[in-house]
Amino acid sequence: MDLKLIPISLVLFRFLISPFLLWDAWDGKTTIWFLVGFVAAFISDILDGIIARRLDVSTANLRQADSWADVCLFSSVFVSAWLSYRDILIAEKLPLFIVIFAQLLWWIVNLIKYGKPASYHTYSAKLWGITLFIAIVALFGFNYAGITLWLTCIVGTIHSIEEILMTLLLPVWTHDVLSIFHALNLRQEFLKKTT
């Protein structure tokens, strides 16, 4: 197997596992296989970027596919949570509404400006991913959604605000911009080139 195919295979794995997670939760209950599949998908998300950079195959198309795989995975997890833990989610609706609103605003801003979602892979996105992992394991493994859910919603909202500001700052679609400070530097470089 060509080693350069490993990152795209890991991205493809997340696309393929997502419907199986949803299928496991369809009856309103999940099995241990849900958590096993989710943990494997989460590890694949960590590894695909690392391996892509090491093999020098971290292209814009791969990074965008990675972002879409994340959307597919976490959308499946959210629907699965709604099917299996609706009462818990309703009890914690305030932080969920805030983070969902921030994400919808993120989508709208990016689609208006670039015609497609951003693919920044910021530090805040990585932090949000860690808090999401903890919240999902707490919910599906221990039926708990208190502090862990609030924490992931707070981090997710901050992340969305940062990336909205980055989109407003950056004149053209750019992938792998690690923070708003990196976006400011890129904006200055772009302005220097155009003047």
Rank of each mutant, 00 (worst) to 15 (best):
N61V: 15
L96C: 05
N143I: 09
L94P: 01
W173K: 14
W82C: 07
F74I: 05
I130A: 00
M166Q: 08
F42G: 02
L16M: 11
A118N: 01
A81Y: 01
H159Y: 15
D24K: 08
I112Q: 08
F34Q: 11
S179N: 14
L178H: 12
Y144R: 11
L186A: 09
N61A: 15
A25P: 00
F101A: 12
L83C: 02
D45K: 12
L35K: 13
L104T: 04
L184F: 06
S18H: 07
I50T: 13
S58R: 10
Q103V: 04
Q188D: 06
L184C: 07
L3M: 06
Y144G: 13
L10E: 03
H182M: 11
L149D: 14
A69T: 03
D87T: 05
L191Y: 00
I158A: 13
P95Y: 09
L104R: 01
L94Q: 06
N61P: 15
P95S: 11
V39L: 15
K126A: 02
I50C: 10
L184W: 10
D24E: 05
F97V: 14
V39S: 12
V77K: 11
A60I: 10
L111N: 01
H121Q: 06
W106S: 06
L104P: 07
S179M: 13
V36N: 13
F20P: 13
S124I: 08
P19E: 12
W33D: 14
F15A: 07
A118C: 00
P95W: 07
K116A: 06
A138R: 11
S9C: 05
L73T: 05
V39E: 07
V79Q: 03
R54W: 12
I134E: 02
E189I: 11
I154C: 04
L127P: 00
L89R: 00
A91H: 02
Q103S: 07
D70M: 01
T148I: 09
L165F: 06
F133V: 00
M166Y: 05
V137R: 13
R54I: 09
L62G: 12
T131G: 03
K4E: 02
T59S: 11
G129A: 02
L149Q: 14
G141P: 14
I147D: 15
D70E: 03
I164V: 15
R14N: 09
F142P: 09
S179D: 08
V36D: 10
T195L: 08
P19Q: 10
